[in-house]
Structure formats: structure tokens, C-alpha cells
Design a binder for these strands. Structure first.
Length: 424
RNA sequence: GGAGAGAUGGCCGAGUCGGCUGAAGGCGCUCGCCUGCUAAGCGAGUGUGCGGCUAAAACUGCACCGAGGGUUCGAAUCCCUCUCUCUCCGCCA
């Protein structure tokens, strides 16, 4: 959510930023409504002031036994007017809030202007793309042959796009989760969190999934609860509505959760394998920071996510999302894309974003500086560290061997009971 | 799922028959004093949001006692609905 004051005072800058994103939002309607709301607010406050003063007079008169009938009659009318104005005010506020909730964040000045993903600049390319002296197989073929994935049976149990792992496949997923959590908690200073996997509407609104993206979420029937699409949602909202002390910041959290995404409209894309599923595991990194350090924290968050790929020796690249590809809530986003040999493409495996105060304003996440009056909004950041299912897929494809077996990366072997390769 | 109790400031906890209660009292915290150190003691201060006025403060208006609605000239106090917490019973990994 943007600051109303920013929109009013800096309308041109906001208009341009929204244009760069490729959105067409009617700022004029918003500004007109806001101006009217302001007028009404001042009228109501003046009337309420009068009511407060006269009510005290009435109390005084009654105490001395005098007749307050005239004043009471007058106040009856004033109260009616107040009630009427309050109704109009509440309606305007609801409308303004609805509009605000649907306006995306402003891109940071450093975000390149562009139309879509083809305009995302590459920041760096890391690791050697493996050279195979045979045709590399897709992970779903490798996995089926090794008996570690079974998407057909998963479809029988639930429907399409659900995972079912067996044996070393299931264990590899678990090994990765443990490895990632261990690195982030013991080396990078994150606090491990195990949050609820369902959250209510207010929590979903706090991080920006609602009201705009309800169609992408799984909703529970009979409850106003949703399955989380990412741990970002419950974890970022932990301190919602609280005022933190500046000395407490930054707060760094990491959490493994399953993630549930309905992504209605994505049918036909990546229909095979582990890339696009309705349920997948992810280890998430979340930070609450001071405004002045949030971009340094974004750099270190990105580095923390990259560390995982470096350790398991997967080749990847980092890109910056351009204005046209930036997510709704983000001010700046780096994607990490891992090399997938069978398709010969880099695929997103992590997305690291700074939301600045956009989520903090929605979720009411504030802090106070010692010796300074008032409060400020924290900056929130998050990134995948990493998407686990996609990491499994990347390991399968990058570490496959001519005989169809999969070499386990060194750092994961302790988590795999010493296993060096997945064999039939 | 059934029965009951409760929700007030950072925390604990008063608020009587609705009327200077933004909210007593205590704890905590901050600053100052005192004290050879520590402890104790003394004094002052200590919510948030949205406006007005300021160079900035000071000052000032409105709102907020779980949330929403109602009664009333006036509600933390009365009424209704909802949410959450606790206790007991039932069920359960």
C-alpha cells in the first residue's frame, strides 16, 4: 500500500511509476475522492468538537439542577448531522482503501524500465554449465526410471500438479530442507520459524496477496482461511500491528513450509515434472529492517540464497526484474535462475525482493527510534532460500550420469546417510 | 461439539448509579538528584493514528479501553452481533 500523502503530493511521480509497470490506474478518481473525504473529515471534527463542549455544559447544568432542554435539543440535531457525515466518510474511506489496496508498489529508482521478462538484465552468471557427452534427460524421465517420483499416482490421489516422492527422492527433498535451514540458521543468522500453513484474510492482505490475487490461492470451505502460497505470508505478519524498537532490527527469519498455489490460468505451462506444482516445499528468508539498511539487507539476502546453490554446485545466474515484470508488492526484485540442462534454460529457483514500506503499511509494522518522537514503518524483504522441489529437479538434471543415476552433491551426503548416488 | 468466565496503556490492575478517565494504583522504562561501588531512596517524564499551526518545537482539534453496530445531548461504563483467550466436559495425533 502506498502512502496517501505520497500519492497526493507526488502524483506525477506515482503516475509515471505506474506507467512503467504497465498498469492503468485512475489516479484522478482517487485524488478527487480523497479531496472530498478531507473536507468531510474536517466538518465532522468541528461538529464533534462542538458536541464535546456542549455535552460538558449540559453535565454542568444538570449538576446544578438547571434546565438543559434547549441545549439537548440542539445537540440532538448536531448528532444527527454527525451521524450522517460519518456514514459518507466511512463509505469514502472504504472506497479509498479498496483503491489503495489495488495500487502496486513504486519501483525503486535503480530498477530498469522494461516491458516484460525479456527486458530483465542479467547481473551475473555463476558456475559452469555441465557438459554432457550424452543427451541429458529431463528430471521427470530420470525420476520415473529411478522410481523416486510418481506424478500419475499423485494425480490419482489428488489431481494434476501434485508431488509424490519415494525413497531417495523423498529423502533428498528432506535433506535439502535440513541443509538449507542449517546453513541459514547457523551461518547467516536467521531465526528458524515454523508458522501456520493456513492464514486468515487480514494476514493475506498484509503481505499483498489479497484482495487482488484471491484466484491464485486455495481457500478453505466454510472458513475464511487460506492455504499459504509462501512462508512469507505468516512470517512477515508475525509482528503485524506491533511497534518494534529500532535496536531490535533487523529481524531475520527462515522457515520451511509447504506452499500451495492454485495459479488459475497457468494450465498448459510446465505441465511436466516438479517445476510448477500446486504444492511444493520452500525454505523462505524474511527480514524486517530499518529503511536505511534495506538495500544492503537485500544484497545479503540474495547472497544467502546464492550460497545454497554454490554449496550444492549448481550453475545459476542472477537477473534483475525490470519494471514491467516486477511483482505487485515489490520495489525491487532479483531472481536467481538455475540451469536446467534438459531444456537448456535457466529456471527461476529463488526470488529476492525488497518491499520497502509497502507491506509494512498494510500490515502495520512499525518501529520507534530512541530519542525520536513518533514511529516509522519498517522495510520488509523476503526471498526463497530456496524452492526445494525445483532444487531437486535441478540436482537430478545437472548431476545425472550416463547410466541414468544421479550423483548426490558432496554437501548433501551427510544428510543422505552417506549416499553418493541415487541408483535404481 | 457442550457449559461457564473474561478481553482496559510495554506489563499487572482499578474504573462505583453512563458526565474533566487517555484513563487511579503498581511494575517496568527514560532523564535528573542523592550515595565511595552495588542496592535502596527522592524528583520529573513515559501511548498511537489523523488533522491544524509552526523553520522546527511548543501549542491545539478529532479518534482510539478486543472488533462492528445500537441506545443517549453524552458510553471504557447500558444493549446486540462477532472474534479471540482461559476453565471444565466430550473427541482426538
Amino acid at each position: 500500500m502506498l502512502d496517501i500523502k505520497t500519492i497526493v503530493q507526488d502524483a506525477d511521480r506515482v503516475r509515471q511509476a505506474l506507467a512503467h509497470r504497465g498498469t492503468d490506474i485512475d489516479l484522478e478518481a482517487f485524488l478527487g475522492l480523497e479531496a472530498r473525504r478531507r473536507e468531510d473529515l474536517q466538518r465532522v471534527e468541528a461538529l464533534r468538537h462542538r458536541r464535546n463542549v456542549v455535552s460538558e455544559e449540559i453535565a454542568g447544568l444538570k449538576k446544578t439542577g438547571a434546565d438543559a432542554g434547549v441545549l439537548v435539543g440542539e445537540m440532538r440535531e448536531v448528532s444527527a448531522t454527525i451521524k450522517h457525515l460519518e456514514g459518507a466518510l466511512a463509505e469514502a474511506e472504504t472506497q479509498l482503501r479498496q483503491m489503495l489496496l489495488n495500487i502496486p508498489n513504486l519501483p525503486h529508482a535503480s530498477v530498469p524500465v522494461g516491458r516484460d521478462e525479456s527486458d530483465n538484465p542479467v547481473v551475473r552468471v555463476v558456475g559452469e554449465v555441465p557438459a554432457f557427452d550424452f543427451a541429458p534427460q529431463a528430471h521427470w524421465d530420470l525420476g520415473a526410471r529411478l522410481g523416486i517420483f510418481d506424478f500419475e499416482t499423485a494425480a490419482k490421489l489428488t489431481g494434476s500438479r501434485f508431488p509424490l516422492y519415494f525413497g531417495p527422492g523423498a529423502r533428498l527433498e528432506r535433506a535439502l530442507i535440513n541443509f538449507m535451514l542449517d546453513v541459514h540458521t547457523t551461518e547467516h543468522g536467521y531465526l528458524e520459524v515454523l508458522p501456520p500453513f493456513m492464514v486468515n484474510r487480514a494476514t493475506m492482505t498484509g503481505t499483498g496477496q489479497l484482495p487482488k490475487f484471491e484466484a491464485d490461492l486455495f481457500k478453505l470451505e466454510g472458513w475464511d482461511y487460506f492455504l499459504i502460497p509462501t512462508a512469507e505470508v505468516p512470517v512477515t505478519n508475525i509482528h503485524a500491528g506491533r511497534i518494534l524498537e529500532a535496536e531490535q532490527l533487523p529481524l531475520r527469519f527462515t522457515a520451511h513450509t509447504p506452499c500451495f498455489r492454485s495459479e488459475a490460468g497457468s494450465h498448459g505451462k510446465d505441465t511436466r515434472g516438479l517445476i510448477r506444482q500446486h504444492q511444493f516445499n520452500k525454505v523462505e528468508l524474511v527480514k524486517l529492517t530499518l529503511p536505511e539498511t534495506s538495500y544492503d539487507e537485500l544484497a545479503s539476502l540474495l547472497a544467502d540464497a546464492e550460497t545454497i546453490l554454490r554449496r550444492i554446485e549448481l550453475p545459476y545466474r542472477v537477473i534483475t526484474l525490470c519494471t514491467g515484470d516486477l511483482g505487485f508488492s515489490a520495489a525491487k526484485t532479483y531472481d536467481i535462475e538455475v540451469w536446467m540442462p534438459a531444456q537448456g534454460v535457466y529456471r527461476e529457483i529463488s526470488s529476492c525482493s525488497n518491499f520497502e514500506d509497502f507491506q509494512a503499511r498494510r500490515a502495520d509494522l512499525r518501529f520507534r527510534r530512541k530519542g525520536k518522537r513518533g514511529t516509522e514503518l519498517v522495510h520488509t524483504l523476503n526471498g526463497s532460500g530456496l524452492a526445494v522441489g525445483r532444487t531437486v529437479a535441478a540436482i537430478c538434471e545437472n548431476c545425472q550420469q550416463a547410466d541414468g543415476t544421479i550423483r548426490i552433491p558432496e554437501v548433501l551426503r551427510p544428510y543422505m546417510g552417506g549416499m553418493e548416488a541415487i541408483v535404481p
